[in-house]
């Protein structure tokens, strides 16, 4: 079971809705969320993480409503969220940081401490476990953020631009990490990078102006590319084709 958005509408304060009547069921496996800046990608992930509350509609996972008091805790335990900006806690070391995230998700301190080591190994930061979190580079900080999402064995991962600031080798490593999660975990990744879609993701969602304008398998998405698109640019071409009439 994955996250289900039912007729969700959301707006910040009294402003116009950022998302309108959104219906989305996140499929098992790896999905990518594409869209221009300001389309509502981060808002959608925030709703899915239970951090933002919809004005109307429902966000749930397997019957656990994100905003129903008795079900909220279970919902949050099963969802991992990487926000766009990962800000280290002042003074904490990398492993402590990740362990604290695990503790916040309901793990015992001992379990979180153990799991943090494994999560850091999965994102290639095992050697940095005892460094101050604030001493990490931007890319390393994002990997630490990913480790925070992995530490508590979430069933759903919502990653907001996890590869921003990562070099190609780190992006490849991140893709390997995602592939290693298997199909038991539903992953939704928001990104602007389309080069390696077909290698990593099974589903694509395209959002613009608060509404989903396309959804389907990666193959279906790539099929929308122009016939003359270069092999390495097919995803970009498909994105441009789908967005073309809207810009």
């Amino acid at each position: 079971m994955s996250i289900e958005f039912s007729c969700c509408t959301f707006g910040y304060r009294r402003g116009a809705p950022v998302l309108r009547d959104l219906d989305l069921v996140l499929p098992p496996g790896r999905s990518v969320l594409l869209g221009p800046n300001g389309a509502g990608k981060s808002t959608l992930l925030g709703l899915g993480a239970g951090v933002l509350r919809p004005r109307s509609g429902r966000v749930a996972r397997g019957g656990s409503d994100a905003w129903r008091r008795r079900e909220r805790r279970r919902f949050l335990r099963e969802v991992g969220w990487l926000p766009q900006a990962v800000r280290p806690t002042p003074g904490l070391r990398v492993r402590e940081h990740v362990a604290y995230a695990g503790w916040l998700k309901g793990m015992s301190r001992a379990d979180a401490w153990q799991a943090a080591a494994g999560a850091l190994a999965r994102v290639g930061l095992a050697d940095h476990a005892d460094r101050p979190a604030r001493a990490l580079s931007g890319g390393q900080t994002r990997r630490m953020g990913i480790a925070q999402c992995l530490v508590h064995d979430a069933k759903v991962l919502l990653l907001d631009e996890p590869t921003a600031g990562l070099d190609p080798a780190q992006r490849a490593s991140f893709a390997t990490t995602l592939l290693g999660l298997g199909d038991e975990v539903s992953v939704l990744v928001s990104t602007h990078q389309t080069e390696d879609l077909s290698d990593t993701y099974e589903h694509v969602f395209l959002i613009d102006a608060g509404s989903l304008i396309a959804r389907g398998t990666t193959a279906e998405f790539l099929a929308r590319a122009r016939p003359d698109a270069l092999p390495g640019r097919r995803a970009e071409s498909a994105y441009t084709e789908l967005m073309g009439g809207r810009c």
Binding site: V51, P83, A85, T89, P90, L104, K105, G106
Partner: peptide, 21 residues
């Protein structure tokens, strides 16, 4: 409180009751 302000996003997604942290 300032340290928690820095990780407000992480805290917002915490499964523990907000009063615990």
């Amino acid at each position: 409180g300032g340290r928690h302000r820095a990780i407000a996003a992480t805290l917002a997604a915490a499964a523990r009751h907000p009063l615990v942290p």
